[in-house]
Each structure stands twice: as structure tokens, then as C-alpha cells.
């Protein structure tokens, strides 16, 4: 009797079963919903960012031609060759030079200009922000051509005319190993400065006015106010700008290098990012380019990790 089910009980049993089944399905469908919404975007990101990343690491253990599918496994050879190569070491060093120039042009100058806006009205700030931002919305490879015109090596080039006023002989700016890198860095910082100014002003505006007023009432003026109140509260934005600059400085000079010097003269304007590009697409050395990419990612990963650690400490300290 216990083992057999009476019909009504059976009916109820199956009904609850199917109902809970339907509930189960509708619930798990609803549970699946967010994944369905995310799936297309995630597919695109995985396909065009993460898979390439994995493929880069994989390719870095091979040697082969970009245009030819035959590749030879070489283990760590690409890495050892790179680290032993004086040209590669110089490329790394020059990447550092670009960072130094960027710290001036993309951090110190825009932040100083932003601090000056504390004395101005919102309308004026808006005007300066909009004006300085203009190069950011223009295609860099296009506006960089005016710089090529300024830096013409002929005596009638604008820069050469300018230094002629001080009795200097004409220079071939972009073909001179000494001047080429600073010239390229100048163009990149000219382009980025306004964008970083925009960000710096936004960071300053995020500081509560009451803080500044309270400090002012408490007798902090001028330099003291700046050093003791404004700068500490501005620190997270400043740190962010430094990180963006550390990471972005190589990218910022990519286009002028490609258009005007192609890394030359004799590698004098090359940096790690452009080296990856030219190894891959000018010399077709797949393995070398990929190994450089891996080194770049490791360096960037370090910078980003460092930023998060610092930010974490500062933010907890403030609270």
C-alpha cells in the first residue's frame, strides 16, 4: 500500500513536479538572462583582445614570418636574444626618456595650469578647457604634418628661421639623433596636454569647496593652503594622471614616429611600442615582436598594480 500511489496522489505528485519543473526552467532562464545580455559583448572582447593576448604569448616562443604560416618553436630564444640586444636595451631606455618628457608636458604643466584655474570663474575655466582640448579631437597623423612643416631641415623652415634669429645654423631636426626624440616628444605632449588639463581640472573641482573654505577660515592661505589642503586632496587625481602618462607616453608618440621618423635616425626615436610594430609589420619578425609584446604587458601590469596599491593605501589613509 505504501509503495503504490493512489491516483489522486499521483496526479498531485506529477502536477507539483511539472509545476516545479516549469518554475525551475523559468527561474534558470531568468538566471541565464544577464549572461545572454553580456554574451555578445564578451564574445567580441574575448575574440579580439584576450585571444590575441594568448596568441601573442604563444607566438613569442616561435620564430617565423608574418606572411608565411611555417613557424619554428624556439623556446625562450626570442627573449634571451632581446635582453642581450643593445638595440633593445636602447629602445627601453628611450621609452624611459619619453616618459620623462611626458611627466613634464602631460603631468606637471597641465596640473600647474589646472591649479591656476582655482582663481578663475567657471566660464573662464570652460573657455580654457575647450580651447586646450582642441588637438585631442583631431586626427594626430593629420595635425602632425604641420609640425613636419615647422621642423623642415631647410634654412627656410620655421624653426630654423627662428634659431637663425639667435645666430644658430640650421638643424635637420628629425634626422639629428640629439633633437629627433625631443621633437617627437614635443608634438605628443602638445597634443595630450589639453586632455590632461581637462582631467586635472575635473579632479580639482571634485574637491569639496567647504574643505577649502574651512581651511581658509582657519588661516591657511596661499602656498600653505595649496600644500596642506589642495595637493593632498588632489593626490588621487595626480596619481591617476601619472599612471596614465606612464602607460600612455609610448602610445602618444606612436603616430608621429610612424609618420615622421619610423624610429630613426638609427633607432634614435624608437620605443618599445613602435619597435613591436616595426618588428611585426616592417621586418615581419613575428616571434621577436610577440616577445616584445609580452615584455610590454609585464611592464604595464607592474605599473597598474603599483597604482592600485598606492591608491588603496592613500584612500584608506584618508578615511
Amino acid at each position: 500500500m505504501d509503495r503504490t500511489l493512489s491516483l489522486p496522489t499521483f496526479a498531485r505528485y506529477t502536477r507539483t513536479l511539472t509545476r516545479s519543473g516549469a518554475q525551475f526552467w523559468s527561474r534558470s532562464l531568468r538566471g541565464l538572462q544577464p549572461y545572454l545580455y553580456i554574451a555578445p559583448a564578451l564574445t567580441a572582447i574575448v575574440l579580439f583582445v584576450y585571444l590575441p593576448l594568448v596568441r601573442t604569448v604563444h607566438l613569442s616562443f616561435y620564430q617565423g614570418n608574418l606572411l608565411n604560416p611555417t613557424r619554428v618553436y624556439v623556446g625562450l630564444t626570442n627573449y634571451t636574444q632581446l635582453l642581450d640586444s643593445p638595440i633593445f636595451q636602447r629602445t627601453l631606455l628611450q621609452s624611459g626618456y619619453y616618459v620623462l618628457f611626458s611627466l613634464i608636458g602631460s603631468v606637471i604643466i597641465p596640473v600647474s595650469l589646472a591649479l591656476l584655474t582655482l582663481h578663475l570663474t567657471d566660464k573662464e575655466i570652460d573657455f580654457y578647457q575647450s580651447t586646450l582640448f582642441l588637438p585631442t579631437v583631431m586626427a594626430f597623423n593629420v595635425v602632425v604634418l604641420i609640425w613636419a612643416f615647422f621642423l623642415l631641415p631647410t634654412p627656410n623652415g620655421l624653426f630654423n628661421r627662428l634659431i637663425a634669429l639667435f645666430g644658430q645654423a640650421p638643424q635637420s631636426w628629425l634626422k639629428d639623433p640629439l633633437f629627433a626624440l625631443p621633437s617627437i616628444a614635443l608634438m605628443a605632449n602638445w597634443k595630450i596636454m589639453g586632455f590632461h588639463f581637462l582631467l586635472a581640472v575635473a579632479g580639482l573641482k571634485a574637491i569639496p569647496r567647504e574643505c577649502l573654505e574651512a581651511a581658509y577660515v582657519d588661516g591657511a592661505h596661499g602656498w600653505t593652503l595649496m600644500r596642506r589642503v589642495v595637493l593632498p586632496l588632489f593626490a588621487p587625481t595626480g596619481l591617476f594622471l601619472i599612471t596614465v602618462t606612464l602607460i600612455g607616453s609610448m602610445d602618444a608618440v606612436f603616430t608621429p614616429i610612424r609618420v615622421l621618423t619610423e624610429g630613426g635616425p638609427n633607432n634614435a626615436t624608437n620605443n618599445l611600442m613602435y619597435a613591436i610594430y616595426s618588428e611585426g609589420f616592417r621586418f615581419f619578425r613575428l616571434g621577436q615582436a610577440s616577445a616584445m609584446s609580452v615584455i610590454l604587458i609585464v611592464l604595464f601590469g607592474g605599473v597598474i598594480y603599483w597604482q592600485y596599491r598606492l591608491l588603496d593605501r592613500w584612500v584608506t589613509y584618508e578615511r
Binding site: G31, A41, L42, Y50, T56, L59, L66, F254, Y277, G280
Partner: peptide, 27 residues
């Protein structure tokens, strides 16, 4: 949902991958 944090991190981290690294494999 369960994987929310992980997937969001994956989305945001994808922005940290430099363009130039993806050029060759995508090509």
C-alpha cells in the same frame, strides 16, 4: 549573478591591453 564581478573585471581589464599587442594576432 554569480560571475558578475569576474566578468566585469574581464571587461575593464581588456582596456588595459595596449592596442599594439593585438595588432599582429588580429592581423
Amino acid at each position: 549573478f554569480r560571475l558578475k564581478k569576474t566578468l566585469l573585471a574581464l571587461v575593464i581589464l581588456s582596456l588595459m591591453v595596449p592596442f599594439v599587442v593585438t595588432y599582429i594576432p588580429n592581423y
